[in-house]
Simulated scan of single mutants.
Amino acid sequence: MAPHSDPLLPLDGVTVVTLEQAVAVPLASRQLADLGARVIKVERPDGGDFARAYDHAVEGTGAHFVWLNRGKESLAVDLKSVEGRDLVLSLIRRSDVFLQNLAPGAAARLGFGSDELRANHPELVTVDLSGYGSGGPFEQRKAYDMLIQAESGLISITGTPDAAVKTGIPTADIASGMYCAQAVLAALLRRFRTGEGASIEVSMLEATVEWMGHSLYTQMYTGEQPQRMGVSHVSIAPYDAYPTADGQILIGVQSDGGWNALTDVLDIPELRTDPRFDTNIHRVENRSACDAVVAEQTRRFTTADLDAKLAAAGIPAAQIKELRDVAAHPQLAARDRWRTVGTEHAQVKALLPPATFSDSAATMGDVPALGQHTAALLTELGVDDETVSRLRSAGVVLCH
């Protein structure tokens, strides 16, 4: 199918068809779109991706949907109809990648199972993303982000000693979406060498358990559940939020050299050789005392003044930014990281993808209205105007 992107972009000429909803696969496919792939998002005519209706926070469009769906084409088609399914199958036959995160087994029942698709299209790359993966006792269970955070152990180590909490962002969705995009890129690289596609499975649970990292290994090899530490760190001290004259500041000292530098800034050089604090192991053992002496000194400074002094000394520190401050962050502004994209209601700000190519800029396409590209895609498939009109009247397709 015809590419729509700058020829310098890495995925120029790659076409992706998605049966996606919510966060995980939409995040993966948006990353591919940012890299130049043509992404065709198949949606239900009666409302489309349900993330469209989470809220109307961004000038009338849902915040999740704006974040995750720029640069895509929306095809609104009823997959319960034979004609609707045939249209999507025609698109997939012309495409390079097919992604889906419908309920377990739903894609296969509709005729979009990976084995079935690749039997006639062996060079196709398919990804089935689900909560728990195929097989096993949890295969058919509901798998929202919060539930996966709970099952993966993430909630058990997040929060304070008094209260476990989920993360403030959909970590399980993001983790699995990142692995989905990474796997697609690897599969395409192999296909360019061998001509063979791939059938890929991504589990939200497995992606999030992988992100548990050192905490999981600590438990497996010591038998001890890592404590919930708030903004502190189970293995490092001082590492926490400390009071200032007008607020608080985060300080994270990760080495004994950093501790020595901190004692200079706080004018407590005698504590360098204090046997309670002279090594990180000793500081962790005496965390309460260490935090107390640091806090006694940090409250002598304003937040801005202490932040500047710590930065000048090379000590890791940060002010706790509200989101309004993040949107106006001077580092993002200095690096010119904001762009403008269109939605069906207004022009809105969008952040450039984190990975910057020196020789090409990311595609920052518009966020599609439901069914915005249906008519054009049907024409591209060779469907005549009379048939398009009939399909529209029958409710098989929605044309914006």
Rank of each mutant, 00 (worst) to 15 (best):
M1W: 08
P3S: 15
H4L: 15
H4R: 14
D6I: 02
T15I: 00
T18I: 06
L19I: 06
Q21V: 03
Q21R: 13
A24H: 01
A24W: 01
L27C: 09
A28K: 04
D34K: 02
A37E: 05
G47Y: 10
R52Q: 04
E59P: 05
E59W: 07
G62V: 02
W67I: 00
L68D: 09
S74L: 06
L79P: 07
S81Q: 13
D86S: 14
L87S: 02
L89N: 14
I92Q: 07
I92A: 12
I92G: 11
S95V: 00
G105K: 13
G105V: 07
A108C: 08
F112I: 05
S114T: 11
L117F: 12
N120M: 13
D128K: 14
S134D: 13
P137C: 14
L147P: 08
I148Y: 01
E151I: 02
E151H: 13
L154S: 05
I155K: 03
T158R: 02
T171K: 01
A183R: 03
A183G: 15
A187S: 10
R190V: 04
R190L: 10
G195N: 14
E196Q: 14
E206N: 14
W211R: 12
S215W: 03
E224V: 10
Q227R: 15
H233K: 04
H233W: 00
A241H: 07
A241C: 15
Y242I: 00
P243C: 10
D246S: 15
G247M: 11
G247Q: 08
S255K: 01
D256A: 03
W259P: 00
N260R: 14
L262T: 04
T263V: 12
V265G: 08
D267P: 11
D267G: 13
R272C: 10
T273A: 15
I281S: 12
E285V: 05
A289T: 03
C290N: 10
V294K: 07
E296G: 09
R300W: 04
T302C: 09
T303I: 01
G314P: 02
I315M: 05
A317T: 04
I320F: 04
L323D: 13
D336I: 00
H345G: 12
A350K: 06
P354D: 03
T356I: 15
S358M: 02
S358T: 02
D359M: 08
G365D: 03
L370R: 05
T374D: 03
A375F: 04
A376F: 11
L377H: 05
L381D: 14
V383N: 02
R392P: 00
S393M: 12
